[in-house]
């Protein structure tokens, strides 16, 4: 457990100092002393983090806690610096609201945030994601049966994933109206190609020997698909699902910039920016970040359960 105690000492002093500074300063006009003490505390905290990152633990649990706490403490420190600088130097709220104000706004406008979340995430993102990933998967299966399609679709799919597909948003709004279906359509198009390309690559990933083994068993296409090729393709498919989880959120929010009913995360962001209500914008950003991370986390968790056999997940 070498190095843990000094690390905790440094970190303890740094964070205690941080709380003291937040307590002492409530508004504006901080001088060089304030900046210097911020710098000193940050150096202390950095030293503590360095010691913690290099600390060695005898038991695995302690090591895991330490590995997790380094980024968490680093993030907390950034939030503290943000709060201290915005409050201490009186940064105008239209530029950068302090975290405390954003948190207050999140709790104050929970109903608006919830309505936006329902409109954008539960409808546009989830439905579009399921349809886009599902159709990409189906087309990949069809392409797998028809080699001609596969050879043609793969280069086109690769090309399409480099294209700025979000740009179709105004067209989709024109076709499907202002409400969530147009956003879901954008999400479908954005998520389709990564799924297609990855599934096609995944289905081709099974080794020759395994395939020939199934051939000697006289397995049908469906049997070899279920028993061998889909399981082998799973890491690729989950890769696409993970890429798509962030793409879907981006697509839905950006599509709302082109016309929307008066609810939705993208709508709220663009209107509140216009009214200089940056705390509301930041509240939406926090909501989007939390929703995006949870979505990604859920997919990653499912991946762990499904592809437990993959080398990258094996315990040492």
């Amino acid at each position: 457990m070498s190095g843990l105690r000094p690390a905790l000492l440094f970190l303890g002093i740094a964070f205690a100092g941080a709380f003291a500074m937040l307590d002492a300063h409530t508004g504006g006009a901080a001088g060089a002393g304030f900046a210097l003490s911020l710098l000193a505390l940050s150096l202390l905290g950095w030293r503590g983090l360095t010691l913690l990152a290099n600390a060695h633990f005898a038991d695995g649990r302690g090591q895991r806690v330490a590995d997790l706490s380094v980024p968490v403490l680093f993030g907390l420190w950034i939030v503290f610096l943000w709060q201290a600088v915005t409050i201490g130097f009186g940064v105008p709220q239209v530029l950068l609201p302090p975290p405390s104000m954003i948190v207050a706004r999140i709790f104050g406008s929970a109903d608006i945030l919830l309505a936006d979340f329902r409109q954008t995430f539960l409808q546009a993102v989830l439905i579009g994601y399921l349809l886009g990933c599902g159709s990409g998967f189906l087309v990949a299966l069809i392409a797998d049966r028809v080699p001609f399609l596969q050879r043609g679709l793969l280069p086109l799919g690769n090309l399409a994933s480099a294209l700025p597909i979000v740009g179709v948003a105004p067209i989709m709004v024109m076709w499907f109206g202002f409400d969530w279906p147009s956003k879901a359509a954008v999400v479908v198009i954005m998520t389709f190609f990564p799924m297609l390309v990855n599934t096609v690559a995944g289905l081709a990933a099974a080794g020759h020997q395994e395939r020939e083994l199934l051939g000697t068993y006289a397995a049908t296409w469906g049997q070899s698909l279920l028993a061998l090729r889909l399981p082998v393709a799973m890491p690729f498919i989950f890769n696409a699902l993970k890429i798509n989880s962030t793409l879907a959120l981006i697509g839905a929010i950006v599509a709302e910039f082109f016309g929307t009913p008066i609810v939705g995360m993208g709508f709220r962001i663009s209107t509140e920016v216009g009214r200089m209500n940056l705390d509301m914008v930041w509240a939406e950003i926090v909501l989007a970040a939390v929703a995006g991370s949870l979505f990604y986390g859920a997919v990653a968790l499912a991946e762990r359960r499904v592809t437990f056999w993959h080398p990258s997940l094996r315990q040492r």
Binding site: A53, N54, P71, F74, V166, I250, V254, I269, I285, G292
Partner: peptide, 23 residues
Amino acid sequence: VLEKSLMPWIIASQTIPILAVAP
């Protein structure tokens, strides 16, 4: 220490739909 403290945040930064924040 940079690896341990920064890497998770670099990955997390991409779950934020930054394009949505562009305005």
